[in-house]
């Protein structure tokens, strides 16, 4: 277990409970989407993983170590956190220096550092912009710089806070591929997101937060099957899930590929029960 959270409870200074007895574990290489309405406690939960918030009660274990005594900078070796607003962190005079900031802090040897920085730039499509001042980039590009600067720290866990917000199409495609690649490399990805299509296409598991507690935890497909019949107001289901439902199909589809496969099986001459609306 790379992440293990047990009965995590957290209150704001004003006494409101933000998280109430949250427990879950994540294995290495899992892609977990954290969903929930605004104010459900998603960001607060994520901030605990990097030690910015400290639980009122309960424990957090990352890579076998309790996080209680560890500072944010120490936790940075295991958990990389990509914040929502890149402008809260970009300070260096060039993209390559910005991306090198984390590896330098973590005191990787120079050769390893170069390797990590180059690989992060390549994976985020920033190689050509390496000498540009981050201030001269568009918001989408700055978000990619922030992402690269965390990737370069080579942490076993990567946490993304609303990665697709404000991103154009090309960046979202790149981001999706990146999430898949990280998981293939055995790194764990946790992402807070509102983007249900992104979630359906690139994640294995969803954790849904509601009023500070977990209301669902399990495989994406099971969750979609469970909620497909409810008129979701706060969470918009993936486009293909809604289409499948309108066609009266039993069981959810969530991606274009899944939908076409299902459609092709309908075209199969084998007897198909009439399911048209």
């Amino acid at each position: 277990m790379i992440v293990r959270i047990d009965s995590l409870t957290f209150r704001y200074p004003n006494g409101t409970t933000a998280l109430d007895g949250v427990s879950f574990s994540v294995e290495a290489g899992e892609r977990v989407a954290i969903l929930g309405a605004n104010g459900a406690g998603k960001s607060t939960l994520a901030r605990h993983l990097v030690g910015i918030e400290r639980p009122a009660s309960g424990t957090i274990e990352i890579d076998g170590r309790r996080t209680d005594g560890l500072g944010i900078a120490e936790l940075a070796r295991t958990v990389g956190f990509v914040f929502q607003n890149p402008d809260d962190q970009l300070h260096a005079a060039s993209v390559v220096k910005e991306v090198g900031f984390g590896p330098r802090n973590l005191r990787f040897p120079p050769a390893r550092r170069t390797e990590l920085v180059e690989s992060a730039l390549r994976r985020t499509g920033l190689t050509e912009l390496r000498d540009t001042h981050p201030h001269h980039l568009s918001l989408g590009e700055r978000k990619r710089v922030a992402l690269a600067s965390v990737l370069a720290m080579d942490t076993p866990v990567v946490v993304l806070d609303e990665p697709t917000t404000g991103q154009d199409h090309a960046s979202v495609v790149l981001l999706g591929n990146l999430v898949d690649d990280l998981a293939t490399d055995g790194r764990t990805v946790l992402a807070i997101t509102h983007d249900m299509d992104f979630c359906a296409e690139h994640f294995d598991r969803v954790i849904v937060l509601e009023n500070g507690g977990i209301s669902w935890d399990g495989p994406v497909a099971h969750w979609l099957a469970q909620v497909a019949d409810m008129a979701g107001q706060t969470l918009e289901l993936p486009q293909m899930t809604r289409l499948g439902r309108r066609l009266g199909w039993a069981g959810p589809v969530s991606t274009v590929a899944g939908f076409l496969e299902r459609l092709a099986s309908e075209a199969d001459p084998a007897p198909v029960p009439s399911t048209a609306p």
Partner: peptide, 29 residues
């Protein structure tokens, strides 16, 4: 928020030298 973001990238801000070094990454943004 900026301090947290930089610490989450491994920046240590303990001691006088740490604090001095944290100044640019804080004041810049």
């Amino acid at each position: 928020r900026i301090l947290h973001a930089q610490q989450a990238r491994g920046q240590v801000i303990h001691g006088l030298r740490g604090r001095a070094r944290a100044l640019v990454p804080l004041m810049g943004p």
